[in-house]
């Protein structure tokens, strides 16, 4: 039986949406992982969005020191698939699992709207079901989504094809229109937009469905 872990930090608020996505799209059991846990026995891990520790100090900073993140580091180094969405992406950069950092939007304001994205890599467990160059629409909802990295990091990201999603129209000032990246090994992905909120045309777009289907087929093939 496949299981997908969804990490819950104090202040996470997209955990229910991530659990629902796993259970409805993948038809797989979602297991809540508590921030104090220090072991992981699931087949993939989702770090959901929200405001862990109120985003106080820096988004993701306090959460990155929690026991579960030490476990996520070991899990990821063993090749386990990990995706961080929004605040989850911020936690992944704060813990060093992904390069770069997420700064305040250049508008300085919170931005909540649907954005068009370009899929730029389908080499990750989460994007296999997309075509490179495909356009998808996901909602964004963040104040600190402005991705920045030094020139050599950007060069590495480009050379290794680690840029996974790019904004068609850059909403927040991100370097190179970056909306999502992976690590070099491609098992860890972080993105600011919310695929788990894009699962039905009734709620505007269902473009997020292939992301969870990709993970399912990856797990079925590898576990």
């Amino acid at each position: 039986m496949l299981k997908v872990g969804v990490v819950i930090f104090p202040g996470s608020n997209c955990d229910l949406d991530a659990i629902r996505a796993v259970e409805t799209v993948m038809n797989v059991k979602a297991v809540p992982l508590w921030h104090q846990d220090n072991t992981i026995d699931t087949d993939a891990v989702i770090l959901p969005g929200g405001f862990s520790y109120g985003d106080y100090l820096r988004p993701g900073a306090i959460a990155s020191h929690s026991p579960i993140m030490q476990a996520v580091k070991i899990y990821a180094s063993n090749g386990g698939p990990v995706i961080g969405i929004c605040n989850g992406f911020q936690i992944l950069t704060e813990s060093g699992l992904l390069p770069g950092t997420l700064l305040r939007n250049t508008t300085t304001r919170f931005i909540s709207r649907d954005v068009s994205l370009l899929v730029t890599s389908n080499q990750t467990p989460f994007t296999k079901g997309f075509a490179v160059g495909q356009k998808v629409t996901f909602p964004i909802a963040h104040k600190d989504g402005n991705y920045q990295a030094d020139p050599s990091t950007l060069q590495t990201l480009q050379e290794n094809n680690q840029i996974v999603f790019q904004y068609v129209e850059n909403p927040n000032g991100s370097l190179h229109d970056i909306a999502g990246i992976s690590n070099k090994e491609r098992n860890v992905v972080g993105l600011m937009p919310h695929p788990e909120r894009a699962l039905s045309d009734w709620t505007r777009t269902s473009d997020g469905v292939p992301l969870f289907q990709s993970l399912l087929s990856h797990l079925e093939a590898h576990v």
């Binding site: 949406d17 931005i111 909540s112 709207r113 909802a141 919310h194 909120r197 699962l199 709620t203 505007r204």
Partner: peptide, 16 residues
Amino acid sequence: IHDQYDSTLFAGTVEK
């Protein structure tokens, strides 16, 4: 105004 509010959390919002 609306762009500053998270209006899509819980993935159930039908219209903007």
